[in-house]
Amino acid sequence: MRLLPYIVAAWLLLTGLYGIVTSRNLLHVIVCLSIVQSSTYVLLLSVGYRTGAIAPIFAEHPPGTPAVDPVVHALVLTDIVVGATVTALLFALAVQVFKRRGEVDPARLRPLRE
């Protein structure tokens, strides 16, 4: 239990990497990259967690109530936003590749020759 969330994070990282390495489709690569990234959410939130503490929001609790770390929450927010937009950009690139080469299998894509 003490290590479980960290092991989940490592598992997500490694499965995502496995997907990227063995993938036969660019869209699948992008989704695998999102899985790799979600391991960072799990890791960051686990590092800042404190058993029995509240979320770092003091609207209904007086300041001083034990709370979890707000810094990692802010980092995860950044992480998610960047992840979402970079995913969109990668999808646009994949669409571009498919239109130009008619192919989405990374193994069958040859270097560009003009």
């Binding site: 058993t51 770092p56 929001i57 003091f58 300041p63 979890v68 802010a74």
Partner: peptide, 30 residues
């Protein structure tokens, strides 16, 4: 897991409400 040692998060949690007049500390950080 569950033993966050601090100190930065705890410091922010204890001062941000008074320093910035917010109750959502994550927003204050961001």
């Amino acid at each position: 897991f569950g033993n966050y040692p601090g100190p930065y998060g705890d410091l922010l949690n204890s001062v941000a409400v008074y320093e910035r007049h917010v109750t959502n500390i994550v927003t204050a950080v961001n």
